[in-house]
Design a protein around this nucleic acid. Structure first.
Length: 816
RNA sequence: GCCGGGGUGGCGGAAUGGUAGACGCACAGGACUUAAAAUCCUGUGACCCGUUUGGGUCGUGUGGGUUCGAGUCCCUCCCUCGGCACCA
């Protein structure tokens, strides 16, 4: 190869991508691998023209970790796929006016091409798309199992309804009152829906799922902020349910003369001066026979209708009305008024509270507004036990987490594999006693294929577009063989993505969702990297399902992701990147102009990976120049000879320091500082090489060769193409650099022979000494040399040294 | 309101309680070149003193504290970003 060849990323990048694919160096043999390491990143959902640079940022950061780990000698499995089923892809198809099925083919091609050119070490022999029937048959299989095990159930409930997406949403998918997908304001609707028992399910060992999900957080190596978000979302509160006798209530059914409230502060029962029930609970009472005035009825209806707005309007003062009856405080035996107010939520605990204005801010506000008594009594700890002993109430735990609503009234998802038989329902027959009329599709009849429906647009009527396809929904009842009806809702996208990591290693396996042997070898996932926005969505659903699979004996681990690292958010010149701002960055244009290696290195150099970074075009130019310098250094100066022994030593010391720093930084995903360390090393090599190029044939310089090789190895995870090109084509090393062992540092070389020792007077720097290592660690010698220092002597003149602080090898401080 | 990050040059950002500003961008000057690009070198927190070599003061959002020594630890407040939000 010529020594004056320019660095041309276009040419070398596509060349190496092709060779890596052909030689399958990134495709470990799943069955035979000796040191398996599963390096996973969150797969993208194709809801736009293509990948944006935020995806690139996430994937490149994850890939660097994977490549680094591979060079440590592990068989790294780094798969990629598409979360292509679901509302996001369907909404995109609607926007484009195209059928999701044909659009999926195009986006697949486009996304995979983009994912290819960023130069990640993906295993392209094992990709998956959630809309692939070989995948979603198993998603349906999971649903069937959930039903058989009693963890899937159907109930009529007030659910979140997105009027724009025309479907229900799970609790986790409502962000600040808005739809997670389209940001429309979410309203409420009462509908029959399928739920998974993530909040109410009991494990075979008797523990509730939310308790295990909470407890396991202490055992996994995850970004702390994600753990905190999950703890808050699960929202476990320990308290007491207290029963209150009611008096003066009219028309109420005879057995309804008590009311139960939940409190986390039963010790303040002595200061409870009123009771508040939510409008929804009041409404229920009216329905079962509570006779009350028109004013109260009017208020209840008003408050229920206003519910959505009240939540959004923090300024709004608490409204409420006296319910015209009383309760007896079991402790004080006093008669306290019962009120109805919208500040009490219907769907938390019992939907009723005891008002303790002395100790609760909301209660105080309410009491002040309506002139209710405020009793300033100290909490009594003994009440926790007394309430139980006296039989007034019992200890109770309440969770913020709800069961997972999994049905969707949309088209582009896996049909829920269930059948409903009217006739069986009437006779109270069915697969499960508690769900008359319902049957799961027999496992041998799976998959239930999603039929092609031309008019797939959501109806908004609370049923899926599949309900118009008689050929699809008309079936025979598995129980009585009479005419029955298939469920026409599809399942939530988050169900598709809650188990995909189990499928990747087993892709191609026909008779299992995941092969037991392969799964034992590769799972749980060793490293998972993705955005923190999934803290309480995908990451919680995955944990729940994995725990369920363990309980069924289908896996031998409870937690899917041993380590999870949340990367930061990329911004553009100080502003958030968003479609509305029109500052979307498409990676392709940068790859075309600078090459993937430059883009990769630049993205990782921007700032700490967990903090995100600020994308600026001027910055990428600098990185391009840096890689050009590396190219010139390695190609033009590769035959350089270090004549000066001191230079050789200096380079070796820096080299070992750099190996140490870069290794540690990558292990902790501190890529920006790893890159600056490599830059420092390059700066030193460049400086030493200036004007000293030697081209004597067959004469090599061992130190220089080693320095260049080490530089390339350290840089390989960041810029895989450039380093491979120089490694094999110019240095004549064996293919591939990416399967070459990572360099090790020698602790002897890390320490410099000479060190700079700082001399301080009263903590202020007044001078410094260049000393050899031995002298620098000798307190007496340093003391002498410091005092002899001209600059320091000036400051010490005529002053008494009261105290001397000596830090070996670093500094000496004289206190005067 | 509660829970988490974070506030450091013109900018992105470095700093196990021990030389604040690594590395990079931008800018300025220089080398090479007929020229340009590329590359390389030098300088670059603010202010003050000194004609130069140099010396000094201040400086990590605010105010206090601990310490020989604080960007780092503790307390007060301010600002900002993210999450949750009438959760009893």
């Amino acid at each position: 190869m010529q020594n004056n060849k320019q660095y041309d990323p276009m040419e070398i990048e596509s060349k190496w991508q092709k060779i890596w694919d052909e030689k399958k160096i990134y495709s470990p043999e799943t069955a035979k691998a000796k040191k398996p390491f599963y390096n996973l990143m969150m797969f993208p959902y194709p809801s736009a023209e293509g990948l944006h640079v935020g995806n690139t940022y996430a994937f490149v950061g994850a890939d660097i970790f994977g490549r680094f780990t591979r060079m440590q000698g592990f068989d790294v499995f780094e798969p990629i796929g598409l979360d292509g089923f679901g509302i996001h892809s369907e909404n995109y198809a609607l926007k484009k006016g195209e059928h999701p099925e044909s659009l999926a083919k195009k986006t697949k091609e486009r996304f995979y091409k983009q994912l290819h050119i960023i130069g990640n070490s993906f295993d392209w022999t094992k990709t998956l798309e959630t809309y692939d029937i070989d995948y979603y048959r198993w998603t349906q299989w999971i649903f069937v199992r959930m039903f058989k095990e009693g963890l899937a159930y159907r109930k009529k409930a007030k659910v979140n309804w997105c009027p724009s997406c025309r479907t229900v949403l799970a609790d986790e998918q409502v962000i600040a009152g808005n739809c997670e997908r389209c940001s429309s304001h979410v309203s409420e609707k009462e509908l029959d829906q399928w739920f998974f028992r993530q909040a109410t399910g009991v494990r075979p060992n008797g523990t509730l799922y939310p308790d295990s999900l909470l407890a396991n957080l202490d055992k996994i190596d995850w970004s702390e902020k994600v753990k905190i978000a999950q703890r808050n979302w699960i929202g476990r509160s320990e308290g007491t349910l207290i029963k209150f006798e009611l008096i003066g209530i009219t028309g109420q059914a005879d057995n309804k003369h008590t009311l139960e409230v939940f409190t986390t502060r039963p010790d303040t029962l002595n200061a409870a001066t009123f009771i508040v029930i939510s409008p929804e609970v009041a409404k229920k009472w009216i329905n079962i026979g509570w006779k009350t005035s028109d004013d109260i009825r009017k208020y209840i209806d008003y408050a229920i209708n206003k519910r959505g707005e009240v939540n959004r309007d923090a300024e709004r003062k608490k409204s409420g009305i006296f319910a015209e009856f009383f309760a007896i405080n079991p402790l004080t035996e006093e008669k306290i008024p019962v009120w109805v107010s919208e500040y009490v939520l219907a769907d938390y605990a019992t939907g009723s509270i005891m008002g303790v204005p002395a100790h609760d801010e909301h209660d105080r506000e309410f009491a002040q507004k309506f002139d209710l008594p405020i009793l300033n009594k100290k909490p009594e700890k003994s009440l926790w036990r007394k309430i139980e002993e006296e039989g007034w109430g019992k200890l109770h735990v309440v969770y913020h987490l709800r069961d997972w609503l999994v049905s969707r009234q949309r088209y582009w998802g896996p049909p829920i594999p269930m059948i409903f038989c009217e006739s069986c329902a009437k006779e109270a027959k069915g697969e499960r006693e508690d769900m008359p009329g319902w049957y799961s599709v027999d496992e041998k009849d799976l998959p239930v294929k999603l039929p092609f429906v031309e008019n797939y647009q959501p109806r908004g009527t609370g049923v899926s577009p599949l309900a118009q396809d008689a050929a699809f929904y008309k079936v025979k009842c598995p129980g009585c063989r009479k005419d029955a009806r298939r469920e026409t809702d599809v399942s939530d996208t988050f169900l598709d993505s809650a188990w995909y990591y189990l499928r990747y290693p087993s892709i191609g396996v026909k008779d299992h969702a995941w092969d037991p042997e392969i799964t034992r070898k590769w799972l749980p996932v060793n490293m998972y990297i993705g955005g923190a926005e999934h803290s309480v969505l995908h990451l919680l659903y995955s944990r729940f399902l994995t725990m369920v699979f363990k309980d069924w004996g289908l896996t031998d681990f409870e937690e899917p992701f041993t380590r999870f690292y949340a990367h930061g958010l990329l911004i553009k010149e100080g502003a958030k990147i968003s479609k509305s701002k029109g500052n979307i960055i498409v990676p392709d244009q940068y790859i075309e102009k600078y090459g993937a290696d430059t883009l990769r290195l630049y993205l990782m150099f921007l700032g700490p990976y967990d903090a995100g970074g600020d994308f600026r075009d001027t910055g990428i130019e600098g990185v391009r120049k840096f890689l050009n310098r590396v190219w010139i250094l390695c190609i033009k100066h590769k035959d350089f000879i270090l004549e000066d022994e001191k230079d050789a030593k200096e380079i070796l010391v820096k080299m070992h320091q750099t190996i140490k720093k870069v290794s540690k930084d990558i292990e902790n995903l501190r890529y920006n500082t790893a890159i600056s360390a490599i830059m420092e090393f390059v700066n030193l090599l460049t400086k030493k090489a200036q004007g000293k190029i030697k081209r004597a044939k067959n004469i090599r310089c061992a130190e220089w060769d080693e320095a260049l090789k080490t530089l390339l190895l350290l840089l390989a995870p960041f810029t895989p193409h450039l380093t491979e090109e120089i490694w094999t084509e110019y240095l004549g090393e064996k293919f591939s650099i990416h399967t070459t062992p990572w360099p090790k540092f020698n602790p002897e070389f890390v320490k410099e022979e000479e060190l700079t020792l700082i001399i301080q007077i009263n903590g202020k720097k007044r001078g410094e000494l260049r000393l050899d290592r031995e002298t620098g660690n000798d307190a007496t010698k340093v003391d002498e040399l410091s005092k002899a220092n001209v600059k320091v002597a000036k400051w010490l003149e005529g002053k008494a040294v009261k105290k001397t602080v000596f830090v070996a090898g670093r500094l000496i401080n004289f206190v005067i």
